[in-house]
Amino acid sequence: MPAGVTVLTGASNTVDETTKSFVAGEQGALRAVYERYAPAVLRVASASLPSRADAEDVVQTTFVTAWRSRESFDPAKGSLLVWLLTIARRRSIDVLRSRTRDENVVKALHHADGGAADEPARPDQVVDRMVVLEAIGELPPQQRQVLLLAFYDDLTHEQIATNTGLPLGTVKSHLRRGMARLRQRWEVDGGTR
């Protein structure tokens, strides 16, 4: 049991401890990975499956599959998050295919795709968002804060400087570095799909 707890303390730049302990099959690691990524996996499954029950079934299958085939996960090829999301997308497509034999569900899907007022995001867009969201979460706090003021509040770098009290040069450098980091993560993890 202590093994499961201690592995959670580290967070390195490359492959973090939770991922390592997951691949090694350590006790507690699956739960830790589930807690970290289940919301993202559910989000991606829900992007293709209109039924919450179907999407939750995909979450379950995804984590079971991932655990059983954990030795095939190669951190050099992409992050654990994207590996899980890729499994989830494949499983969702399988479920969709089995459902399309059913006329009603075809209609339901058509409806889910159709131009509703706020158009639902495509699954691959959702994957991109999850990758970038995780990368944002891993930025140094001040860099993250500055970037989110630009993204979410649409502030200019001058307004950010005023709001945070940081020098203009620091704000600009945070924006550049933060953005470069997100881009790197997005390009690396985008390449695995």
Binding site: E56, V59, Q60, V64, W67, Q125, V126, W186
Partner: peptide, 26 residues
């Protein structure tokens, strides 16, 4: 493109956990 995705993450910040039965099944 990165900016556009970054802005879109705003809608994804408070994602729910699946219901308890999912972990129980796993």
């Amino acid at each position: 493109e990165v900016t556009a995705i970054g802005r879109e993450t705003r809608a994804e910040r408070d994602l729910p956990m699946p219901s308890e039965r999912v972990w129980a099944g796993i």
